[in-house]
Amino acid sequence: MTRLFGLKNCDTCRKALKVLNDVDFLDVRADGVPPQVLEQAYATFGDALVNSRSTTWRGLSESERARPALELLNEHPTLMKRPLIERDGVLYLGWSAKVEAELG
């Protein structure tokens, strides 16, 4: 089973959805990310999981940005780099040529 966590209006997520077959799409704005998936993703990718170029990030104060990443991601799931793809318990972050080759 493959799950893609992203935003429905994200171009990168749309590109991934076009290539992947039989995928469950979960909109992080509407559905959030299950805490266990978020914890596993943070353990795997560390601070790369936080999209510091996002509009949400730019809207945070310096004191908010200093908070632990998992707290921020739980509170603001749109801060997560997208897409986060889970297939058979393995996580992939972003939609690079390498990720596409492994999953496509």
Rank of each mutant, 00 (worst) to 15 (best):
T2R: 14
T2E: 03
R3G: 00
L4R: 00
L4M: 06
F5K: 00
N9V: 08
N9Y: 07
C10P: 03
C10I: 06
D11T: 11
T12H: 08
T12R: 07
C13L: 03
C13I: 01
C13N: 00
R14I: 08
R14G: 01
R14V: 08
R14T: 05
K15R: 15
K18A: 15
V19R: 13
L20I: 04
N21T: 13
N21F: 04
D22L: 10
G32I: 04
G32Y: 01
P35K: 11
P35I: 07
V37G: 00
E39F: 03
E39Y: 03
Q40D: 10
Y42A: 06
T44R: 10
F45Y: 12
G46A: 09
A48S: 13
L49K: 02
V50M: 09
S52R: 15
S52A: 10
R53M: 06
R53Y: 06
R58M: 13
G59Q: 12
L60I: 06
S61K: 13
S63F: 09
S63R: 14
S63P: 02
A66H: 08
A69L: 06
E71T: 14
L72V: 09
L73R: 01
E75H: 14
P77I: 04
L79T: 04
R82N: 05
P83H: 04
I85V: 13
R87I: 07
G89V: 07
L93S: 05
G94R: 02
G94Y: 02
S96K: 10
S96C: 11
A97P: 06
K98S: 14
V99G: 03
G104I: 09
